[in-house]
Computed example of a mutant assay.
Amino acid sequence: MKHKVILVVLDGLNYTVANHAMGHLQAYVGAGRAALYTLTCELPALSRPLYECILTGVTPIESGIVHNHISRLSHQRSVFHYAREAGLSTAAAAYHWISELYNRSPFIAARDRHTQDSDLPIQYGHFYWSDHYPDSHLFADAEHLRVNHTPDFLLVHPMNIDDAGHKHGLDSAQYRNSARSADIILADYLQGWLLAGYQVLITADHGMNNDRSHNGLLPEEREVPLFVLGDAFSLNPDVMPKQTELCGTVCELLGIAHDKPLCRDLLRPAP
């Protein structure tokens, strides 16, 4: 069965903080309408390499996007590419590195900030470049894309949690409160997304440490959440998904051909 999908990547969100600070999402889990899993991010635990991993299913050492300063188009096939080849519509409200990976590189704000081009992998986009760009604005950007273009696949990628972690560290009120703020913002949109028929995945690229950074092997840097909401998910608590399986799992939800690994146990068996 084909579904529409929203993938939310809460940049820099550590699993432990997601588990104890995101009360609205946990209310869905407690009601049996969502599930929360632990993902261990691939290495290095850096943003641009892991955007590529999440959206293509390819590890950084295989993709060649091995640090944040590699600015070029991806050499891999992403969810956006598979969706467009299948005739589906795509959109993203995201950091400008997403545009550089899958649409055009380098990012030129006057050209790429607001994208509407049916020939690009990401057809509709609102892209930002300041890490403190408010999450509230970013989610409003995403909802504008959803309401006006009804994309089959929508990426939502806010940055304030990561920004707070780099400024204040993992064990700080600012970092935890940034996660709580994102949860409250999500509360304004989640029910509408689900009622519109979207399957929703909420995850993170990497976590955060007390040195106000991330790149290593510490659990707080590598363990990130995966919340899933929607009637296409099994909600099986024993599933152990991998970050490299997100791309294929999203493609499976979209009902499109792909050659990526996926976590089939995340999904409800077809009737």
Rank of each mutant, 00 (worst) to 15 (best):
S234D: 08
T203E: 01
R104I: 07
N209Q: 10
Y51V: 08
Y102S: 03
A182N: 15
E143F: 12
D171M: 10
H114P: 00
D163H: 15
G230N: 13
G192Y: 10
C53V: 10
V29Y: 06
I256G: 00
A45D: 02
F227E: 05
C251P: 00
S89A: 11
R48E: 03
I98D: 01
S47R: 05
V147F: 08
R146S: 09
T59G: 00
A179Q: 13
F127L: 14
A34Y: 04
P269H: 06
D238K: 14
S234V: 04
D11P: 03
L10D: 01
H157Y: 15
R113M: 14
T203W: 00
L145Q: 06
L217T: 14
V147I: 14
G57S: 06
V58L: 02
T59I: 10
L253F: 01
D152E: 11
V66W: 07
S178M: 13
Y95N: 11
S213K: 12
H206T: 05
I185S: 02
S63N: 08
R113K: 15
A35E: 14
G248Y: 00
I184C: 07
D205Y: 00
G197R: 03
R146H: 12
A27F: 03
R84N: 02
N209L: 06
H81S: 11
E220W: 01
L201H: 04
G125T: 09
L7M: 12
F233E: 00
A86P: 06
H24E: 11
R268W: 02
E221N: 08
H67V: 09
D259I: 00
V29T: 08
N19A: 12
H258K: 00
C247M: 13
H168R: 11
N160W: 00
K2H: 06
W97K: 11
N160L: 03
E85L: 13
N14A: 14
F153P: 08
L13Y: 09
S105C: 15
N236F: 04
D211H: 14
Y198W: 09
P225C: 03
S99E: 14
